[in-house]
Simulated assay, not measured.
Amino acid sequence: MNRAEREAAARRVMERVAVPVPPDLSTEAVRRGDRLLRRRQLVRRVLWLLLCAAAVAFAVWAADAHPWVEPPSQTTPPVSGW
């Protein structure tokens, strides 16, 4: 498609009769946008809450279990009676 054909196609598109827009389209779009925004904010807050709860649970577990301490060796019995 060369430049003249593209210009002719663009003119044909612009000369068409505009499709009528429903009168309540903008109010419906605003309502849906507000609902989506509130839903995203709620999801974001719930995820932050879950992340904080997981961090607290991990801290409590780590304070109780001491996962950084090496467990005692159980491969040989203790030597006694020498």
Score class of each variant (00 low, 15 high):
P72K: 05
R12H: 13
R6C: 02
G33L: 12
V69C: 01
A53H: 05
R32K: 12
D24L: 03
T75A: 11
R12Q: 14
V79S: 06
R39Q: 09
W61A: 08
A55P: 00
A57D: 01
A9P: 11
V46Q: 13
V21F: 01
Q74P: 01
H66A: 10
L49N: 08
A57G: 05
P72I: 10
A63I: 01
T76V: 01
P22K: 01
T75W: 15
P71E: 12
R45C: 08
P77F: 08
W82L: 14
E28L: 15
A9D: 15
A18S: 08
T76H: 08
R35N: 08
V46M: 11
V13R: 15
E15M: 14
V30I: 07
R32Y: 03
V19C: 04
Q41H: 15
R39E: 13
V56R: 02
V13I: 12
R6H: 04
E7P: 00
S80W: 05
S80Q: 04
A29C: 03
L49F: 12
T76A: 09
W61F: 10
E5I: 00
S26I: 14
A63S: 08
E15T: 08
R38C: 06
S80I: 03
S80A: 09
P71W: 01
L51H: 04
L49S: 14
V17R: 07
D24Y: 04
R16I: 06
A55F: 11
P20W: 00
G33I: 07
R45L: 15
R31K: 10
R3I: 00
D24K: 10
R11D: 04
C52W: 07
E15A: 14
G33W: 07
E28Y: 10
A57Y: 03
